[in-house]
Design a protein around this nucleic acid. Structure first.
Lengths: 142, 142
DNA sequence: ACTTGACCTTATAGTTACTATAAGGTTTAG
DNA sequence: CTAAACCTTATAGTAACTATAAGGTCAAGT
């Protein structure tokens, strides 16, 4: 039986966040000690660990709630979880692609900024690059 | 001279977002027509394009406001912009790394889920994988 | 003249996943 | 007996929008 602070330490989830999860019903209301402090059982901690782990996999809290609901009904959430995973993978791969393109663009702009003569750099410079939105194509491919 | 809807079409920024930018003073209050409709000049549109382009580069609105403030004072924001860019690139590269690790982990879990015998898959399955948080290491490297 | 639909206006609340703050109660060590 | 390190609740703030409500304006069609 652990206090909220102890649970926080053991799981790496802040006390604020634990209370937040309780508020949005992702975690059940724990028992209370005589002084009204929260007291957590092993199964509470296990559930929190599950939530935390799923968050690290970037599952939305809503999806996690759904999975937990399946779990509680003793229905197998497997197919659901597998579907969510497939979706997640697609979304993440798209994000990676977007970010890579963005990084290339920024690196380009930065490089152009560096190679500008100082007096121009200090007057028109990078703002112009941002503004036009064409530097990328200019430098890159066209 | 354009209406908010026309500006929206020309820039790809929703009318809601244009009003939002005005509210947080990223854009100046435009003139109004007799009917109280917003009327935008070319320079208004140019400024919005700048904001939009910077957003596409994932600059925070706060940074954009800072850059625009420099611009207005005719002070060269160059060094500031260059610094922001450098920071952005670092942050983005970290995010890409995180996401790649996450994707690998998910792909792994998904693969394990697929190769599970169906009866097990339908009872313990992926939830267990999420729960333990150890499947990744099991499958990957150790 | 009137109504329908596509515009425009403001103000306010909702989104996601937290984080921070205020204002206070409890417990333990010195 | 007081200071610290816990705990409690309630509420507001974060980023960058998006959605909703409730209404005003305008051009075209009947």
């Amino acid at each position: 039986m652990l206090s909220i602070g102890e649970v926080s330490q053991q799981t790496g989830v802040s006390t604020q966040t634990i209370r937040y999860y309780e508020r949005i019903k992702l975690l059940p209301e724990p028992k209370r000690a005589g002084n009204n402090y929260r007291v957590y059982s092993d199964s509470d901690v296990e559930r929190l660990r599950f939530v935390n782990r799923a968050r690290q996999l970037d599952f939305a809290l809503e999806d996690i709630a759904e999975i937990l609901a399946f779990r509680y009904q003793n229905a197998p959430p497997c197919q659901y979880v597998m579907n969510v995973m497939t979706q997640q993978i697609t979304v993440i791969e798209e994000r990676i692609g977007d970010l890579q393109r963005l990084r290339d663009e920024l690196v380009n702009l930065h490089r152009v900024g560096l190679t500008m003569p100082e007096d121009i750099e200090m007057k028109q410079c990078v703002c112009h690059l941002i503004k036009t939105g064409q530097s990328n194509e200019d430098v890159n491919d066209e």
